[in-house]
Amino acid sequence: MSIFVAVQSDDFCVASEYNELRQHASCGAVVTFSGLVRELSDNTLHSMTLEHYPGMTEQALIAIAEQAQQRWQLGAVHIIHRVGTLKPHQQIVFVGIASAHRAVAFAACEFIMDYLKNRAPFWKKEHTAQGDYWVEAKASDKQALTRWE
């Protein structure tokens, strides 16, 4: 299986990632997920800054991809996470999975996102019309891990 992990300030191209993922022999399914900067309900979000722990972040993402590979037979896993300042609707994260059949690719994609949200050292700070706020971790994200235990 091939694992590709990147933590970068640059944007990514979903089409390029998809085209790479679909080259993997014996893979009949590609599932991709993109996470975007969501507007706040009152439309006051100017931008968001993503901080991370350089070094640990990359290791954590590789470890999550390897865990997914131990659970399922996967052809390729791509994880890209952006850092720095992003505006509403910009891309934050990409997860792409190539596997023989779709069920495994969907499951692995959800597994990776659930673990990324709980284990990868990234932190979001929102810059809004009312001020700057660190985003609080959600109990629902923690709860999501229980389905894999």
Partner: peptide, 23 residues
């Protein structure tokens, strides 16, 4: 990531942070 019971010694890098919020 380790629990608070983990050991540390000279040369180690120890980090503390709030719950993560990436993705």
């Amino acid at each position: 990531l380790v629990p608070l019971t983990a050991s540390v010694q000279d040369g180690d890098e120890l980090a503390f942070f709030p719950p993560v919020t990436g993705g």
